[in-house]
Write a protein that binds this DNA or RNA. Sequence first.
RNA 1: GUGGGUGUAGUUCAAUGGUAGAGCACCGGAUUGUGGUUCCGGUCGUUGUGGGUUCGAAUCCCAUCAUCCACCCCA
Length: 423
Amino acid sequence: MNYQAPRGTYDILPDEISKWHYLENIIRRNAKLFNYKEIRFPIFEKLELFKRGVGETTDIVEKEMYVFKDKKGRIFALRPEGTASIARAYIEHYMTSSQKNPLRLYYFGPMFRYSRPQKGRYRQFYQFGLEYIGSPQPIADAEIIALGMKIYQDAKVPDIKLEINSVGCPICRKEYNTTLKNFLFKDKEKYCSDCQRRMDINPLRVFDCKNDSCQNLLKNAPRMIDNLCTDCDNHFKEVLGLLKKMSVEYNVNPYIVRGLDYYTRTAFEYKIDYLGAQNEIGGGGRYDDLIEYLGGKPTPAVGLSGGLERVILSLDKSKVYIPDEDSLDVLIIPMKYEFICQSIEILQSLHKNDISSIIADSQTSLKNNLKYCDTNKVKFAIIIGEDEVISGKFVVKNIRERSQKKIIISEICDYIFSNLKLV
RNA sequence: GUGGGUGUAGUUCAAUGGUAGAGCACCGGAUUGUGGUUCCGGUCGUUGUGGGUUCGAAUCCCAUCAUCCACCCCA
């Protein structure tokens, strides 16, 4: 084998596509239910957009982007996530009219991050996302969170947990950061080397440490959630209240830190605990300052994104039944190549009636063609041989019932059409 | 980016440094125009790739590519 898919990428083969359609249909259906409109945006953008939007010091931007130059030396990056592009499009197309706002959008598509592949972690991976732009109100947060949960529940992802936190606004977060740093640096030497490094770069990350002695030291550490300003605190409490009203179960986890800089106030994650290190299948939060920061008018917004392959892995693992897609209606089997004209005639009339059909290879044995019908759940087979051509009556087999009937050519479509519903 | 495991037929897996094998799948026949069972027969490999050690390498060593696990990060 000379060529293989690049590291961290993979092919989705026809046999697996029904899972993807299943999931995409659930997302589309729910998006429609809540009046979210699909948006499609480029797979690459100016590097600057992600640097500014996602945050210069985030891991995503710092070490995980596919960056390239085009022929004129412009620097682009393959998109590592969707929100920055959505904010850009929102500003670029002046999608601000009050008749359309708040604006509800959803998207699907591949994202790219250069990281070491593992199960459930790829370099090209698929995400869906929902964005609710133009409302600062807690009901927007609650709608997004509940809708995400509904999608996972509809898809039958087992044991999904919602964790929620508030990361505050720039003002109270800044204050909190100093408080936390003071607390940490007081006993700096007592922490593990990882934690000491985290203190400088992203102090909130120390809460993720798995080291028991560090956790012990952190017991009395100040938490963001206790240091929110009044507005942020009220906002958070209202979001929680609305979730309760909507019967969405959640756990407040004061240590959720998202890897993208644009989040303000609400931050949340959807988690499962049976996929190893990849326990987060989706997440999101509020990003009230992003659009302004990228050059638009101040516009509050909240959104979420979820990874499709992690959902599919979880469905595989828990053996959730996924219905097969519609199979082929009719296989036309010419016994010899010379009957190809009659085959085409039947094929075209079936297609006119919206009945899916193909002509079998006349070199394959009848036996194998019928086997093909069995394994691929084809509904009918039409056999075309000398007898049929002379008599004008063709054998139409109902594959599942293993029965057959001779029918004149002009009535084949009607016969199959009326029997398809029964199959 | 760091540390470790794995790589053999389409697939799942065998093979003390000494002739590369089995199940499933596939193809053919029993049934010369009729399919899910059964029986019989058959095809399939530069052992991921490239070097090295050895009389001899799937097996040992090095490199490389891919994959998996943990860290990291996140979807």
